[in-house]
Simulated scan of single mutants.
Amino acid sequence: MCEFRIINRTALIPALALSAIALTGLASAPAQASTGEAVIYTGDQTPLTVYQNPTGCRNFTTGARPPTTTLLNLTDGPVYYYGQRNCPVGGEVLVVQPGYGRVLPINSYVYYSLEFT
């Protein structure tokens, strides 16, 4: 046996509208940008490359092959390192977590990219 209830439409419509607004707000909330600095060190007596509050994809090159290239992640989010330009999807080589550093695998005269989240 089926039972039917009469629903108060005047209470239901505002409740549905508020639920839709709340769900839309959650779904479209923008990602929080990283704060802090990411630093690339390429050797003694060379200028540091510093990214302040970085977002998105950043291309960089080391020019002539340096003895070492180190990334220091002083941001509050992970940094993804790519062995090619423009941060290709699925092409990350490694991830450097906040508060950590990493010696990067570098070839001579090649462009690289970093993605900040």
Rank of each mutant, 00 (worst) to 15 (best):
A17N: 02
T49N: 09
S113M: 08
N59E: 13
V110F: 05
V95Y: 03
F60M: 00
N8L: 09
R9Q: 06
L104G: 05
T49I: 14
T46R: 15
T117V: 08
V96C: 08
C87T: 01
A20I: 10
I7N: 10
L12T: 08
P88F: 04
Q32G: 11
C2Q: 05
E115L: 09
D76A: 00
L104A: 05
Y112M: 08
A15Q: 11
D76M: 02
L23D: 09
A38N: 06
C57D: 03
T62R: 02
I40C: 10
A17F: 10
Y111T: 13
P47T: 14
N107S: 07
A33L: 09
V93Q: 07
P98W: 01
V103P: 00
I6C: 08
L104R: 06
V95W: 01
Y82T: 02
C87S: 00
V39M: 06
G99H: 07
A38W: 08
T35Q: 15
V110M: 01
E115M: 04
P30Q: 02
D44P: 14
E92C: 05
N8M: 00
A15E: 08
V103K: 08
A15N: 07
N107T: 14
R102K: 12
D44R: 15
I13Q: 13
A27C: 11
T75I: 02
L72R: 05
V103E: 03
Q97G: 00
P66I: 01
P88D: 07
I6Y: 13
A33H: 07
T10S: 07
T55G: 10
C57T: 10
V39H: 12
Q32P: 06
A64C: 01
C87E: 02
D76P: 00
R5S: 12
L18E: 14
G83K: 10
E37P: 02
D44Q: 12
Y109G: 06
T35G: 11
T10E: 14
N53V: 06
G56E: 05
R9M: 12
P105Y: 09
A22W: 06
P67Q: 12
P67N: 08
Q84S: 00
L74A: 03
R65I: 03
A27Q: 14
